[in-house]
Write a protein that binds this DNA or RNA. Structure first.
Length: 256
DNA sequence: ACAGATGTTGATGT
DNA sequence: TACATCAACATCTG
């Protein structure tokens, strides 16, 4: 296989949500991958790694980034030609990025600041409890990629509902039993999400609207699927958050 | 039509 | 320390 570049505007000197325009060195590093074979594709949390014979790419999809094959999609930022097939990095909001790096820098770049991967290395209840020390909210802790790598707003919201834990619980206040529930909630949420990926319902919902495939996310006012109570919504940790006030009891009496 | 919200996350400010 | 806010941007909803 070989790779060939077409656009370089998403190429950045480092993993960053900040678009930058002047990256001639990074663009040159990408061009230098032309003709190199792809050896492996790796993932740690939300970071992706593309390992070439010589050199590598670290990538983050941001909010709207995606890889597509076939015809050039809208908002194509980068095109790689592998054989006769084009693979496109499309990213409407341009928070995603592609960062060339040296081969021996790929693993450090993928793992820097990252906790264990939520899908590949989900800690057991005890280890989870240790990682969740502190008084900050459970939701903030779970969104912290250094605590657990790979969960974003949706999966945290859904996993907390599955576990029956209020997002505003202090992270360090969970009992071992609650950590076991949380672990199972995360595992089941990710397993279900992966199973649904084949149908692309989540992606379609988020990018094109349509039926909401989630249990509580985006469902304020709807009945909880478990107890029938009305789902509530609030902004926590600066992110939209939904939960069932009955299944996920609040840590303080003044919070719903 | 327009205001507001949206899957990310690092930098700033209080 | 721990928060909220903002900044990048395009698109969709109410």
């Amino acid at each position: 296989m070989s790779a060939w570049t077409r656009f370089a505007c998403a190429i950045r000197p480092s993993l960053s949500t900040r678009p930058s325009t002047a990256t001639p060195a990074a663009a040159a590093a990408l061009v230098a991958l032309t003709g190199r074979r792809v050896i492996a594709v790796e993932r740690v949390g939300k970071r992706l790694g593309l390992r070439f014979e010589r050199g590598a790419l670290v990538m983050h999809l941001g909010m709207t980034g995606r890889w597509e094959t076939g015809a050039e999609p809208a908002h194509a930022r980068l095109g790689l030609r592998v054989g006769e097939r084009w693979t496109w990095f499309a990213d409407a909001r341009r928070f995603g990025c592609v960062v060339p790096c040296a081969l021996d820098a790929l693993q450090p770049a993928l793992h820097a600041g990252m906790g264990p991967d939520a899908l590949a290395a989900l800690p057991d209840a005890e280890a989870l409890r240790e990682r969740l020390s502190g008084r900050r909210s459970l939701k903030v802790a779970l969104l912290d990629q250094a605590v657990l790598a790979g969960l974003g707003n949706i999966h945290v919201v859904e996993a907390l509902w599955r576990a029956g834990l209020h997002p505003n619980r202090a992270a360090g206040s969970l009992s071992l039993r609650e950590c076991a529930r949380l672990r199972q909630g995360i595992a089941e949420q990710l397993a279900d999400a992966l199973a649904q990926l084949g149908e692309e319902q989540e992606l379609v919902y988020l990018t094109q609207g349509g039926r909401n495939p989630f249990t509580v996310y985006g469902r304020e006012g709807a009945r909880c699927a478990r107890c029938g109570e009305a789902i509530v919504k609030a902004t926590l940790a600066a992110r939209s958050t939904w939960w069932c006030p009955s299944c996920q009891p609040a840590p303080y009496s003044n919070l719903t």
